[in-house]
Write a protein that binds this DNA or RNA. Structure first.
Lengths: 192, 192
DNA sequence: TAGCAATTTCAGAAATGCCTGAAAAGTCAG
DNA sequence: CTGACTTTTCAGGCATTTCTGAAATTGCTA
């Protein structure tokens, strides 16, 4: 592995973390390398730096492309493909979440819905369905929240995250204010 | 595998999903089984239902205990250990997130901080550090947000998730209001 | 169209992770 | 302390995944 120590440490760590996430080590390493690189790399440059086979890099890049996690670039007068990660780290987060949702959450929701449609023959199955319903509702709640939040501009998203639980305070404030006669701010909500 | 079809489908799916998450299939299956079970199971009951070896179940349960994901119970006059998942699905979510943070986020943050302390010999390393700083700040932002919301009661958390991006509206309203002279609501913020 | 450069495919080797049975260790009642 | 019951450990076999080198494919240029 032909890398500055700082980069090497990061690449190795990221490769390990990848393993815990169902992503194989090489794929994790390639991504880490591209992430910290100051310019696009072609496949051979990656081979040099990571010390793995050319074919392995090819497969890794293919997988990263399937995840929409790397971008392909070309240089004039050079036929080789050059790869980068998006400059904007928030774009990376968005892609990652989007893809994981597509591959893991959506199929699970589909399965849960199917299982909830079936009718339970035994008490055991009836109880299982109750639990699956809880899980289904939980997933739906997260999916709904995500569908909402994904549209926010990054700036707003950061604002939200920075506030954290303090949002609760703001909500309470809103509750009080929107009940005032005269509609000082926002749309008046019906009293419940 | 000796299970009602509905439960079996779920258990198999969950086992597969487990694989994608760095959790092995058996562990995923054991957890799925306990999750939908209407009563605690002992190790032999799990063996029967999943059709795997006793030792495999033992190791799986040990791992789930290390993750705080199962609870151990005893019955009077019965020496065997009986296992359940928490009744409250939100408790499960909380544990899952907490443990993943402890095992993945925290060590990564530690590493990133270390790498940012080092001084960069080359331009390449300097740029790498810039990227690592972005990643570090991102992780910190999430960690801070999480430290905040983890304390919320479930009811509040659900409220927040249900609102989703509509919180943004509330934030805008707050922005306007807190700038008003006379401090109608909340603490006045300094104009920037 | 031939020739070259780059990438992809794929069969088998290597590595890793998982599972099992057998044995060891732990735990309780009498 | 003994014996019965239960859980844990672990070496070795099995299965799956990952990685490689060689060959095939793609695509460009002359």
């Amino acid at each position: 592995m032909q890398l500055p120590p700082l980069v090497q440490t990061f690449v190795l760590h990221f490769g390990e973390m990848g393993s815990r996430w169902g992503i194989n080590r090489t794929v994790g390493q390639i991504y880490a390398l591209l992430f910290v690189a100051e310019r696009p790399f072609n496949a051979d440059e990656i081979v040099e730096r990571l010390g793995v086979s050319r074919s392995n890099v090819s497969m890794g890049l293919k997988e990263l492309q399937a995840w929409n996690l790397v971008r392909l670039q070309h240089r004039p007068g050079d036929r080789r493909d050059y790869f980068t990660t998006p400059e904007d780290i928030w774009q990376i987060v968005r892609t990652l979440v989007e893809e994981r949702k597509k591959r893991e959450v959506d199929p699970t929701l589909t399965l849960l819905r199917e299982l909830l449609m079936q009718d339970a023959a035994t008490e055991e199955e009836r109880h299982a369905q109750e639990r699956l319903k809880e899980m289904h509702d939980l997933f739906e709640l997260f999916a709904g929240w995500y569908a909402d939040v994904r549209r926010l501009e990054t700036e707003r998203l950061v604002q939200l995250l920075t506030l954290g639980a303090k949002v609760q305070k703001v909500l309470e404030m809103k509750d009080r204010l929107t009940r005032l006669p005269g509609r000082i701010g926002g749309r008046a909500s019906k009293p419940d």
